[in-house]
């Protein structure tokens, strides 16, 4: 009886978004009287961080500090349309729409600044701290707060912009089947190191090596956490979670958190994560979607590592001690005495 160590890997290509009849999202942006730019969206942030990404895209495009951006995702009835946050599409679709809206708003902002500073708008630039100034003449400048006040009360202008990103429907070419179902694809590879106890059948994931090609990591901390949190879900799917452990028989299915097995903090593998950046031509600042794919590669990587460790090839999740032991028994039956 021994603890057998094994290593396995798996790779995944994952599409960003979908195109069932066209896949649009819209964004509206306007400046308040004091120069806060409100980004109105119907896109829902359920923890994945779309509000942060939308604020970053708006601030970068406007040339203003992120503190000057307020993202409002309040109401899908009254906000600009969004298909939803699914299909790993949010950063790509919404990010692009926000960039388009912010670019229009920036144009108006520079027009009003041109009037205030009595120069041509093409000669203006933003310094990223809140000032709009004449290129090469840094003392000729106006702060966005004063600019927004002037726009509202002197010039009668709205500093605003509209944005939309539409992935158009793509039907397959009948002769070849060729089509363009997504906008870009992210790629990843995971290597898993496991230990299999051949007496108890328990599989422990010791280490995960995650490599993700994400286009551009708009927020590297959030992207890394998505990778590692997703990998945790992958480990959970691989070793623990199921609603129907004896499918198709429905016996012994968990009904609540108390019976639904998930790995806890003591079951953590050590994770090493690397982000690679090859910007996508149609991504917001090059970004691709990595929402869902992060739970995928760890599962087959763990299955392959189990095979490497003890020769048992498991094809049904989760890889429970019972399944590992049955696999080991089957191998022993095959062995000549």
């Amino acid at each position: 009886m021994a603890k057998l160590r094994g290593r396995g890997h798996a790779s995944v290509n994952y599409p960003t978004g979908m195109n069932l009849g066209g896949d649009p999202s819209q964004a509206l942006i306007h400046a308040t009287t004091t120069g806060t730019f409100v980004v109105s969206l119907s896109s829902v942030d359920l923890g994945q961080g779309i509000k942060t990404i939308a604020a970053q895209c708006a601030a970068e495009t406007l040339g203003l500090p992120i503190g000057n951006v307020l993202v409002d995702t309040a109401d899908t009835d009254t906000g600009p349309h969004c298909m939803g946050t699914f299909a790993s599409r949010g950063s790509h679709r919404v990010g692009n729409a926000v960039i388009m809206a912010a670019a229009e708003a920036r144009g108006v902002m520079l027009e009003v600044a041109a009037e205030e500073l009595e120069v041509d708008a093409a000669d203006l630039e933003t310094d990223g701290t809140g000032f709009i100034m004449v290129k090469g003449a840094q003392d000729r400048r106006i702060h966005v707060t004063d600019l927004a006040l002037a726009a509202h009360f002197k010039h009668g202008r709205t500093i605003s912009g509209r944005g939309v990103y539409l992935k158009e429907p793509s039907a397959p070419v009948p002769e070849t089947g060729e089509m363009d179902p997504d906008s870009c694809q992210a790629h990843a590879c995971t290597v898993a190191v496991v230990e299999v106890d051949d007496e108890t059948g328990v599989v422990e994931v010791l280490e995960l090596f995650n490599t993700y090609e994400v286009g551009r990591a708009l927020n590297p901390a959030m992207a890394t956490q998505q990778v590692e949190g997703g990998a945790w879900m992958g480990v959970s799917h691989a070793l623990f979670e199921t609603t129907e452990p004896y499918y198709p028989v429905r016996d012994h299915g968990p009904r609540d958190f108390a019976g639904y097995l998930m790995p806890g903090p003591a079951d953590l593998p050590i994770q090493h994560s690397l982000l690679l950046e090859r910007p996508a031509a149609n991504g917001p600042y090059g970004a691709k979607g990595i929402g869902e794919m992060t739970a995928n590669a760890p599962i087959p990587a763990i299955a392959n590592a189990i095979f490497d460790a003890c020769g048992v090839r498991l094809t049904s999740m989760p890889f429970t001690p019972e399944r590992v032991l049955r696999g080991l028994d089957a191998l022993r039956m095959e062995e000549p005495c």
């Binding site: 590692e228 949190g229 806890g264 903090p265």
Partner: peptide
């Protein structure tokens, strides 16, 4: 630390940043 938080479920982070 791991023992202290073992009764608390986190579904996002993989626990490591919390520890």
């Amino acid at each position: 630390v791991i023992e202290a938080i073992s009764g608390n479920v986190c579904r996002c982070t993989g626990y490591r940043p919390i520890v």
